[in-house]
Design a protein around this nucleic acid. Structure first.
Lengths: 177, 177
DNA sequence: CCATCCATGTAATTCGTTACATGATTAT
DNA sequence: ATAATCATGTAACGAATTACATGGATGG
């Protein structure tokens, strides 16, 4: 689950409490993905158990209960491994965004190859959509029902086009290093 | 859950088996959303229990087990109610796609108002993203880390821009009726 | 003093995925 | 024959959402 790797990245930037992580999660990749505090505490518990992170009870601030998490070497290794391994499951485009953030923190891991591969796949899908559009909706005189069905397909097309345009922006940034 | 309304729409087009619904689900809105057959049978069972649909065991085709589902008046009423009620929970943009398909089948329900409202919200979000971009990334000399963080934000921006462009295409189709 | 923020959790429910299971029909 | 497709389900597990619950610190 890539939520763990998103948290590892944040913790590498700065050891934090679960509460703080929740806020920063929303600020960094909140454009696409929200994680509730329950989710975050659960994943922190699992990663602590796995030895990826460590929790230190911070009793400096009076009686207030405050648990600071920091990344341990196995956690850093896991993050590096995950960034350099192309995604097979889940939503690869979303994972890539989290990997970009990770790259910003732990340096180059050849992410441009995964991006290139994703671009090939998205272009293929876009081509498929466009073929369907030509086949089913190229006619000048469409009924309202057909126009609405066309609109659903159009949403898929503009989403793919937007994603590819974005990927075209990002690729040089990943390469020029 | 809007999966039920997607199924109601398909069933209004044509009374079908669960298997057939699964195939048509993939073909119609499969660009964004996949539903497994297990999910579909579960929802069909619930809707039958709620009196929205009716199952007739089709024994015409030999011993082959084949269950035909068709929409009952309460189901049609529920679909109309759902289409005309602006979405508050879940992913409103995804719901809108299913509503478009429903509109193609059960006629005008003032969907253009919900689309208009969604456009206002997306435009506001886009403005917010652009402000963040100006504030944090307008500088000419950005570090690699900053460029990568910028890329994540850019993904949000192009997604919003693409969605708004799409909405601009669809709005006239909904209005000209 | 009261609201808001900081901070951490548990419990119940629902949703989605994966695996398992069965059997008839149709095309090669 | 046998593979693919049609067709319908159950069971187990994991993930996400919602509700519930607590309590200290800070600012007005």
């Amino acid at each position: 689950m890539s939520i763990q790797h998103a948290l590892l990245t944040s913790l590498l930037e700065k050891p934090s409490t679960g509460y703080d992580l929740a806020r920063r999660f929303d600020k960094s990749i909140g454009y696409f993905w929200h994680a509730s505090h329950q989710q975050i505490y659960r994943e922190l518990g699992r990663m602590a158990e796995a030895g990826w992170i460590e929790a230190t009870d911070d009793n400096e601030a009076g009686k207030r209960r405050r648990r600071l998490y920091r990344v341990l070497p196995p956690g850093a290794a896991e993050l590096a491994r995950w960034v350099s391994t192309p995604e097979t499951d889940g939503d690869p485009a979303r994972s890539l965004l989290i990997k970009l953030r990770a790259e910003a923190v732990i340096g180059p891991h050849g992410l441009e190859r995964e991006l290139g591969q994703l671009m090939v796949e998205h272009r293929a899908r876009l081509d498929t959509y466009r073929e369907i559009e030509q086949r089913d909706f190229a006619d000048g005189a469409l009924s309202t029902a057909q126009k609405l069905q066309h609109a659903v397909l159009r949403a898929g097309i503009v989403a793919e086009e937007g994603w590819l345009a974005w990927a075209g922006e990002v690729l040089p940034v990943l390469r020029d290093r």
